[in-house]
């Protein structure tokens, strides 16, 4: 399969996930906008009117950036992990480049993430914070998070074929990550001895960077570089594991 055909296959599979999700609903694709909109409206209301923390008047935006980045991670990795099993009939019967399956699943989640990020930008503007030059770093951060999740999913999906426990390990890790990512608190309140946990946690890095870009109009180059190195490393490792295990998938599906 040539390079360009691979690109077409990837986009076809991503669109397939999208269509299937909303196919039988009367409002269809509208839900991919409505769900994040409702979530953001409710959270904004709660964190501006009800629980107005001393952390500043844009606390709802702080929480939302954290939540949006985290849910891409958690949903992307969970669905990526089970993607090989979910496409068992395809893998057993048709010769596809198998890496494309977890990649398409993660990137399909990425599309929803993109929609949520755009809505977030709207909310930021509406809160009176103008767009600034640092927004050019946004695509970089989003792509790096996607690369990281793809790497994790490649490894987990391959292992899940042989050891079905892996999906439960992933679920537990996601639960832990929910608290290890500063969603409801900011980086500033973390005691210094624990800083390293957050600096080497790519999802936390993404959240911190998003907040800096959107709310403070600054950027932390060192964090971006760390994130890039970690994401690339995880992706390379995930790809290596996947390639070692993929020849025998069909025997175990």
């Amino acid at each position: 399969m040539t390079r360009s055909n691979l690109g077409y296959l990837l986009s076809t599979l991503i669109l397939r996930d999208f269509k299937v999700r909303y196919r039988n609903m009367s409002l269809g694709i509208f839900w991919s906008l409505l769900n994040p909109l409702v979530m953001m409206a409710v959270l904004s209301f709660i964190f501006t009117r009800i629980y107005a923390s001393e952390s500043g008047k844009n606390y709802h935006l702080t929480v939302l950036t954290g939540l949006v980045a985290y849910s891409f991670f958690s949903l992307g990795w969970s669905s990526g992990t089970v993607s090989i099993l979910a496409n068992a009939s395809l893998i057993k019967r048709v010769p596809v480049p198998r890496e494309i399956i977890p990649l398409a699943t993660v990137l399909a989640n990425g599309m929803h993430f993109l929609i949520q990020v755009l809505l977030l930008l709207v909310l930021v503007l509406q809160a009176g914070i103008p767009a600034n030059g640092m927004w050019v770093w946004l695509p970089v951060v989003l792509v790096l998070e996607a690369v990281f999740i793809c790497g994790l999913s490649l490894a987990a999906s391959a292992l899940d074929v042989y050891f079905r426990d892996v999906r439960y390990i992933v679920e537990s890790t996601n639960l832990v990550m929910f608290w290890l990512v500063p969603i409801f608190y900011s980086f500033a309140v973390i005691p210094e001895q624990y800083h390293w946990v957050y600096q080497y946690n790519p999802v936390a890095a993404v959240v911190i960077l998003l907040r800096k870009i959107l709310l403070e109009a600054t950027i932390e180059l060192r964090t971006i570089v760390n994130l890039a190195i970690l994401s690339a490393g995880v992706f390379a490792a995930g790809l290596w594991i996947f390639r070692r295990m993929k020849p025998r998938f069909a025997d175990y599906l």
Binding site: R16, K19, V20, R23, N24, N87, S89, L90, K92, R93, V94, P95
Partner: peptide, 16 residues
């Protein structure tokens, strides 16, 4: 190039 017909509708999604 191999075109396999090993199963009816392998990879087909019923809702599409």
């Amino acid at each position: 190039r191999v075109s396999p017909l090993l199963e009816l509708g392998a990879g087909y999604h019923p809702d599409l």
